[in-house]
């Protein structure tokens, strides 16, 4: 049973041995020339092609960059909020210290000559 299965697999693996090579359909050169001519006349420029082929436009990279940008935005917003909270706490503390030492009322004038 196992031998039969192994033989079957071997047959499949060797099924391309001795096969003929595939040949291009007729008038290949004529179609190739027509394609080259069409491209030449349509003025397809190299820069445009390079941009189209650029890795940055591949969906996987574009999606990864989008997620990265969103993550950076989220981090910046969260950090900004935390910093704002800290600033408020700092201001409160300063105000209470100033109140304790009567520093809030700085309307008093000091005569430096005295």
């Amino acid at each position: 049973m196992n031998n039969e299965k192994n033989k079957k697999i071997e047959d499949i693996l060797n099924s391309l041995d001795g096969s003929q090579k595939a040949t291009v359909p007729g008038f290949f050169y004529t179609r190739l020339k027509a394609k080259m001519l069409a491209r030449h006349t349509s003025g397809e420029n190299e820069l445009e092609k390079r941009i189209n082929r650029s890795w940055i436009f591949r969906p996987a990279y574009a999606l990864a960059i989008l997620i990265l940008v969103l993550l950076i935005n989220a981090v910046v917003i969260l950090k900004g909020n935390a910093a704002a909270d800290n600033n408020t706490t700092d201001a409160d503390t300063m105000q209470s210290i100033a109140g304790d030492y009567s520093l809030n009322d700085n309307t008093a004038l000091y005569d430096l000559n005295q």
Partner: peptide
């Protein structure tokens, strides 16, 4: 083209 077309296609 005629020399290499079949190798390329195959």
């Amino acid at each position: 083209v005629e020399t290499y077309q079949d190798r390329v296609f195959n």
